[in-house]
Amino acid sequence: MGGPSVRGMTNAVVVEGLVKRFGENTALGGVDLTVSEGTVLGLLGPNGAGKTTVVRILSTLLQPDAGRAEVAGLDVATQADQVRAAIGLTGQYAAVDEYLTGTENLEMVGRLYRLGKKEARSRAGQLLERFDLTGAANRPAKTYSGGMRRRLDIAASLIARPRVLFLDEPTTGLDPRSRLGMWEFIADLVHDGTTILLTTQYLEEADRLADRMVVIDRGQVIARGTADELKAQVGGERLELTVGTVEQLAVVTDALRPLAHGELHADQQTRRLSLPVTGGTDTLAEALRRLSSARADVLDIGLRRPDLDDVFLTLTGRSAEDADPDSAADEPTATVSAGAQS
């Protein structure tokens, strides 16, 4: 079995020093992570960071070049067959057979997990109902929408009640409504005690679903912790505003300085001021009051919560979207720093 974690729980996933190379390219350069049983780990990173490679190794699709990995207490290299019986995998592309109906897809996967005919059928029925697919159960999956296919795909990976579930970017490409629905389904699974390793490009998604997060970039872990810990590293919520003239920038900087919980950043070129704050909308209301009494000419003001891009800017100095190191040039050209006040 996996070693105990700090909280004394059993680890459902243990990864130590995982290395994977594809030719010259090092996809994973020594990744360590653990997932406690019954919790959700969010594995975050931009495209090409190595998230999918981790999932593929843990689900026995790829062999690592070095390091070891255990899933449900089983070694992925030497006990691959037992690992496969204990996991469910939902890849980035809904891997459903589009010529089979929803029921046929689930029954097929159930049979291949070695469920009996009856059990495969009854599990298929339960899961179709749970994922709102009962009405489409007897239609070929070809006729399903993208969201329905994803749900069918997740249902297929759940058919044998896996102890550990891997979800590789489960909402990429879904419209916002389907994404919200998917989040609810995943939250239900967690509630039922399934251990989940979830990869995503969206901090918001990990924020909603994950107990802990690991951020990887270029095959290296660059940060780990709870959502709050990560946000603390990034700097929490920020108040951002744009003013009409450069002179106004000094006015608003003076007016808002008392609200800042950290460094203020004033960018002369874009005439934007950004300051870390706490207190949410109360602080926003207070800021508006101060700006009003300072007669500041504000074009735009808002509270912004940190996203993955902020994590990346903070941790690597690079943008999450743009892996190009030159993007550091996008940083504010002139930064006015002010001491933190509370």
């Binding site: 689900s59 026995t60 019986a85 592309y93 809904a94 291949l112 997990y113």
Partner: peptide, 17 residues
Amino acid sequence: QKGLIDRFRSLPMSRSA
């Protein structure tokens, strides 16, 4: 192409089936 081989390979099924 459609990812079905990945799905099959992640299942505890026979390797040649």
